[in-house]
């Protein structure tokens, strides 16, 4: 017998960069969560996380799994793709038709969620890491800027230095040459965000005039990226609560 606040399901989202897990109650509130870098042996990692969460809540719960490693989550009772889980997670928070932009480690998804929470349409970047969290990670690593400081850097920029290439490999060399030419770091970072946002906007295609945009995924924690995306889409972009956990939340809700 479960009441409000009692745990009803676990959701696990095994992404390419991070592994996320949540325990939810019937109303969809997140009671516990875990976020860890994804281990190459995901089966062992998820077994350990699940054991820890079960121990913490003191009972067995149905498990929903999603993400690239979804098929290797031991004991999963529901296995669904990230598209479906992100849509369910997002809809449980906004309860209306929205366009969801999920920027994760290795892919960016645009999901058009209907008024009933259904997936009306979706688009994803194909075969290329440009336009994803990995792209930012590579360049920030090269510039030695920690992820949690990047927004402050971009906010300080006096101007934007255009970065023309959105291919991770070419952008990296382009950025290095801009630094060598004496361009200020802040301006380069802003240019980089703008170019990335334009790529995501191109993926989104033509959006309905009244479309409301929400964002999830680890990259949504970077305020500069949210701003750049809003500018590229010419729309206000709101970030979902716990953006990194939206997929795991959707998986848990599907299993409950």
């Amino acid at each position: 017998m479960t009441g409000a606040g009692a745990p009803v399901a676990i959701g696990v989202d095994v992404g390419s960069t991070t592994c996320k897990a949540v325990v939810v109650d019937r109303a969809g509130a997140i009671l516990r969560h875990r976020v860890e870098p994804t281990h190459p042996r995901t089966e062992q990692q998820t077994t350990r996380i699940l054991d820890e969460l079960r121990l913490a809540v003191g009972c067995e719960l149905p498990i929903g799994a999603t993400g690239y490693g979804r098929k290797r989550v031991p004991g999963a009772t529901k296995v669904l793709t990230e598209i479906t889980c992100h849509a369910r997670g997002a809809f449980s928070r906004v309860k209306r038709a929205v366009v969801l932009v999920d920027m994760g480690g290795q892919d960016t998804k645009i999901v058009r969620i209907g008024p009933g929470g259904d997936v009306a349409d979706f688009a994803m970047n194909d075969k290329c890491a440009a336009g994803t969290g990995r792209f930012l990670e590579v360049i920030l690593g090269r510039l030695q800027v920690p992820f949690d400081e990047v927004s402050a850097h971009v906010a300080r920029a006096r101007r934007s230095v255009p970065v023309s290439s959105t291919c991770t490999v070419f952008a990296e060399s382009e950025v290095i040459s801009l630094v060598a030419q004496g361009e200020e770091l802040e301006g380069i970072l802003r240019g980089l965000h703008e170019s990335l946002a334009k790529r995501v906007a191109a993926l989104a295609g033509v959006l309905p005039a009244d479309a409301r945009i929400v964002m999830s995924g680890g990259v949504a924690l970077n305020a500069a990226m949210v701003d750049a995306l809003g500018a590229a889409l010419r729309r206000e972009v709101s970030v979902l609560p716990d953006p990194q956990l939206v997929g795991a939340l959707g998986a848990a809700l599907s299993a409950s």
Binding site: Y68, L80, T81, E82, I83, T84, D118, V119, A120, F122, M124, D126, K127
Partner: peptide, 16 residues
Amino acid sequence: YAVEQGHGRLTAFMES
């Protein structure tokens, strides 16, 4: 063609 990604897209489509 990346089979895993392709099948992932198709699965998401079917789930919808």
